[in-house]
Amino acid sequence: MRVSRSATLSLRAVALVYLSLLLLVPLGVIFAKTFEHGFGTAWGWVTTPAAVSAFWLSVTIAAIAVPLNTIFGVGAALVLVRGKTPGRALLDGLIDLPFVVSPVVVGLSLVLVYGAGGWFGSWFLHQGIRIIYAPAGMIIATVFVSLPFVVREVAPVLSEVGEEQEQAAATLGASRWQTFWRITLPSIRWGVAYGVVLTTARALGEIGAVAVVSSNVAGSTLTLPLLVQQRVTTSFGSQAVTSSYAAGTELAVMSLVVLVAMTLLAPRKGDAA
């Protein structure tokens, strides 16, 4: 189909305006509001003990959830694409569960299972392990909601790359493990990388499921998004604005850092072939 130059330009303009209104303008406003009273004030709000604690809790949760979901995701994608076991359709459906179930419901179900009166909760409490209203539950909630990203990014790449290179490696004497590390993983690396970016972004930004299983105590069980929420709802006036926007900006910057890091590591086009 041939599209005239003016049509192309106007389509682009529409897309840009659309994205600007939905994404760039609100983000821009956050940045602007954050630094309304100067950089020092904003810096002060992101370095309060509560903010520092929230930052580290968010980082810790992501640092645990992302590797877990990466390992699980690559494994599940291998089972789905390369496997021959009959249960694949079921696994395929289950993996999308976190996408279709509301995060709040995820949080509630975790309370039912791991909470004080829940199925496993009492046993864990007996062992002195607190899951709900503690970081452990927040990690479980985050793992759950960010589970599908790596699988969904890696599976199509795996099936596009095909099985022949792996078979060639086998005929050349490579064991399954050697084939995985030397052939399979390098050929799906960009799918994995993109899945990791999405998982990280979701792990850092998740609020619904995490809020339900958190005790919402500043300094111990508040993540950055929860801190933003708390500052918005419990403080007043310009303080509320600056403090919550400062934490919001911090969160946005963290996500941007992840994105930029991946873009820098990303493939030059010719490499991907």
């Binding site: 290179q165 078979q167 005929t171």
Partner: peptide, 20 residues
């Protein structure tokens, strides 16, 4: 026996080069 234990060399129809 697994392919890697058969002492064979195999050339695939589309060569299956290791792209990376």
């Amino acid at each position: 026996a697994r392919p890697q234990d058969r002492g064979i060399g195999f050339v695939f129809q589309h060569y299956a080069p290791f792209a990376h």
